[in-house]
């Protein structure tokens, strides 16, 4: 019987780095989202651009916060 050990898809040692970078990118994109919302008027705002920025920001923030949880020892 051949046994194969199962390990995490992402090495444990990368978790802190991944958390920092993904959260940083996520926060920058979030900032650009709010800057866009504040600087453009209601008439010439494009919904597609808003939604793409929101999706990119939430993906980075979501995975960033997951890696933050993992690196702080909360293994979900």
């Amino acid at each position: 019987m051949t046994t194969k050990s199962i390990s995490s898809p992402v090495p444990d040692a990368w978790y802190p780095t991944l958390a920092v970078f993904m959260l940083a990118i996520g926060l920058v994109v979030t900032a650009s989202f709010f800057i866009y919302e504040a600087t453009s008027s209601r008439k010439n705002r494009s919904l597609v651009k808003e939604l793409t920025t929101a999706v990119v920001a939430s993906v980075f923030l979501g995975f960033g916060s997951l890696f933050l949880l993992l690196s702080s020892g909360i293994y979900v």
Binding site: F33, L61, G62, F63
Partner: peptide, 16 residues
């Protein structure tokens, strides 16, 4: 992670 992503996305949708 998708749960976390959708939570953040809902926040952005609310803002929009």
């Amino acid at each position: 992670p998708l749960m976390l992503v959708s939570a953040f996305f809902l926040f952005f949708i609310a803002c929009i």
